[in-house]
């Protein structure tokens, strides 16, 4: 057997899960297992207790609320991708999910698992950052809502503490007919990207940009919004966007470096992919009017 020995728990409610987290030491939560199971098989983690949260129905599902959309932490990536609500109101999330792994990993992998694991190249937390999502955590003191800006604490590090779990992610969709664009570079389809970029645009009837979001991921240790370049886009006409300030912002990034990919290459990718994402966002804005 590959994984090291652990005690297996399968709570059926959020309360049972909370109680287990409060009372046990050296615990790991098992969601879709698409990141944790490889680590268990390779024995890079050795929890004393494994808490399987796959049988807690309240943690899964996509709900339209009065002010947005709430996606339960245990909602499978395949179900999000197939959801007409998501395609209609959070099209950027659907667009990005096509690049997350393969049909056999999306059938198990969850949005919550990806947002808690926080691989720097992961698409789902990146899209959460682009959309200013809110993360709903449950801990011994009850519920706490964490803004996307505070969620990312560094490489593989979320804002959750040991006694908390992620319950859901909340989104406020952009205006109907907004433009969205996404681009990433990976060696093969479905592999983790080396780097990627996303763009969101709203414009008025005359085509003047009223709101913009620009983001790169897989560049620095956490997804990175380019707020100055976003501000520079507002007021520009959607048909003739000046890309130069965006490329300048990309050049000012502080990319990660590893044996396969240099910081310079990531910086180059960031600029190229941002350009593609912005162009795609402009085209989609036109088509969705």
């Amino acid at each position: 057997m590959k994984p090291p020995p652990f005690q297996y728990h399968r709570p059926q409610t959020r309360e049972e899960l909370g109680a287990l987290l409060a009372n046990l030491d050296n615990v790991k939560i098992l969601a879709g297992g698409q990141s944790l199971m490889p680590m268990l098989n390779l024995r890079v983690v050795a929890p004393d207790h494994l808490i399987d949260i796959n049988r807690i129905p309240e943690l899964a599902g996509i709900r339209e609320t009065t002010d947005g959309i709430e996606i339960g932490a245990m909602t499978r990536q395949a179900d999000i991708l197939a959801s007409p609500i998501i395609r209609d109101r959070l099209p950027l999330l659907a667009r990005a999910l096509e690049h997350v792994g393969h049909i056999q990993t999306r059938s198990r992998g969850t949005i919550g698992g990806s947002c808690c694991h926080l691989d720097p190249s992961a698409e789902q937390p990146a899209i959460c950052a682009a959309l200013d999502a809110e993360f709903v955590a449950i801990g011994p003191k009850g519920r706490r809502v964490i803004a996307a800006a505070d969620w990312f604490q560094g490489m593989l590090q979320s804002a959750l503490d040991d006694l908390e779990f992620l319950e859901a992610v909340r989104f406020k969709p952009w205006a109907k007919g907004h433009g969205y664009g996404f681009a990433e570079y990976a060696r093969r389809h479905g592999d983790f990207a080396i780097s990627g970029a996303a763009a969101l645009l709203e414009a008025d009837g005359g085509g003047s940009i009223t709101r913009a979001a620009l983001l790169v991921f897989g560049v620095e240790e956490a997804p990175r919004r380019l707020s100055e370049a976003e501000a520079a886009l507002v007021g520009q006409n959607i048909g003739e966007i000046a890309l130069a300030p965006i490329l300048d912002a990309a050049r000012a990034l502080h990319p990660m470096e590893d044996v396969q990919v240099t910081a310079d290459y990531r910086r180059h990718l960031a600029g190229t992919l941002l350009g593609r994402a912005v162009r795609e966002a402009c085209v989609s804005r036109e088509q969705r009017q």
Binding site: Y8, L30, M37, N41, D52, A78, H102, Q104, S107, R108
Partner: peptide
């Protein structure tokens, strides 16, 4: 992907699921 099986209609990697 060599270990792919179908669980409740969906293709999954059986090395990334526990038997239980």
């Amino acid at each position: 992907g060599a270990c792919t099986v179908i669980v409740d209609g969906a293709p999954v990697r059986s090395c990334l699921m526990l038997a239980v």
